[in-house]
């Protein structure tokens, strides 16, 4: 107690990076205290290219105004891989982003990074998680060649591995804190296009809705993707969206989830460690989710990050936070993902 009054240098505050699939989600995220919001154009230049989602130029301009008035930054995701026939569309998206005054673009494609760094040297570049940079050497490559300022770590590394990356790169490191969990290395998964012809890399979406079919059958509710049976649900089950890696299949006669049960990532309890190791930003997944989701998750994480900055080692996760997050999680079950590896 005697030391409690001794002034300490304030810990560098973790930035909270929140998803905005729609203008109301952007406003709610900013109102609830997001430091950065990330969003995409209404097309396949970003990895959440879903019908009805995302921003056109007008709503983006309004969104940037709103965020900047309240001190938040806007990051534009251009994190899919352009092909020759569509290259100009991505190139023009970079140009429009620069002209509209976004605070950074989040890019995965090497050619597009080269174009952006050459053409818009003042535009801040973030390396997308789709860029699959899993080591400090891969991240430093992008820093040396394209001057990236921040990199989003793929969700495959343990805390120890993430810590090593942070300590060996001049680039800010952003890690995923909460949301739907990808168990494959981002940018290295073609399961969706194998069944449907469209993947995050090529079309900005995994398991596109046009390829999804739900059907009530005598054996239960069946979900199919591109005609492939992904799962069957009994009445008591909680059906997940038919993403391939969350399906139930048969291996040597055993029917189970060969990849993973539907779960959500939740790293609240790692906050003190992430802060201490010098992680720059925590990313919340979910541009496809509703404003209600964004509101809840932003509020909880804002409170938690602020509490962690004040309390440091004394920081404890509040049960009310976990309860709130559990209520909006897919699959009702949260894990620490790869950060803590019970499966390792």
């Amino acid at each position: 107690m005697a030391q409690a009054a001794a002034p300490e240098a304030p810990a560098r505050r973790l930035k909270l990076v929140c998803p905005a699939g729609t203008p109301p989600a952007l406003k709610i995220a900013v109102d609830q205290g997001a430091d950065d919001v990330y969003l995409g154009f209404k097309d396949e230049t970003n990895a959440r290219n879903f019908a009805g989602l995302n921003f056109d130029e007008r709503s983006l301009r309004e969104g940037i105004d709103y965020a900047h008035r309240k001190g938040a930054q806007v990051l534009l995701a251009l994190n899919t891989f352009p092909q020759p026939a569509t290259w100009r569309k991505w190139q023009s998206a970079v140009d429009r982003a620069a002209a509209l005054g976004v605070d950074a673009i989040i890019v995965a494609d090497t050619g597009l990074l080269a174009y952006a760094s050459r053409t818009h040297p003042a535009l801040r570049l973030h390396l997308s998680v789709q860029g699959s940079a899993t080591s400090h050497e891969a991240i430093n490559f992008h820093h040396e060649r394209f001057g990236i300022r921040r990199a989003v770590l793929p969700r495959v590394l343990s805390v120890e591995q993430a810590e090593k990356v942070v300590s060996r790169t001049p680039v800010e490191i952003e890690v995923f804190g909460f949301g739907s969990l990808s168990i494959m290395v981002e940018g290295r998964c073609a399961l969706s296009s194998y069944a449907t012809g469209e993947s995050p890399n090529t079309h900005g979406g995994c398991s596109p809705a046009r390829a999804v079919r739900w059907q009530e059958t005598p054996r239960g509710l069946e979900s199919r993707l591109g005609g492939v049976l992904i799962d069957r649900f009994a009445a008591a089950d909680h059906p997940g969206y038919p993403t391939l890696c969350r399906g139930r299949f048969v291996v040597n006669g055993d029917t189970y989830y060969p990849f993973e049960e539907p779960t959500s990532l939740n790293t609240l309890e790692l906050l003190p460690r992430l802060q201490a190791m010098g992680v720059a930003a925590i990313k919340i997944e979910g541009r496809q989710r509703s404003p209600v989701y964004v509101q809840t998750v932003t509020r909880v994480w804002r409170e938690a990050i602020d509490a962690c900055a004040r309390e440091r080692e004394r920081f404890r996760v509040r049960p009310a936070w976990q309860e709130a997050l559990a209520g909006i999680s897919e699959g009702r079950q949260c894990t620490l993902g790869a950060y803590h590896r019970p499966w390792k």
């Binding site: 891989f81 352009p82 092909q83 020759p84 290259w87 995965a108 494609d109 090497t110 050619g111 597009l112 080269a114 174009y115 860029g131 699959s132 940079a133 899993t134 080591s135 050497e137 891969a138 430093n140 490559f141 992008h142 040396e144 060649r145 940018g187 290295r188 890399n201 090529t202």
Partner: peptide, 30 residues
């Protein structure tokens, strides 16, 4: 992966493997 590209860059000719995600000519040019 790009760590390997960094290790090889400018030192010797290398093969850009299938996991480098070369989807366009700009990436191949780099």
């Amino acid at each position: 992966d790009m760590a390997a590209v960094r290790a090889l860059a400018g030192r010797m000719p290398f093969v850009a493997g299938p996991f480098l995600n070369v989807y366009n000519a700009a990436t191949l040019a780099v």
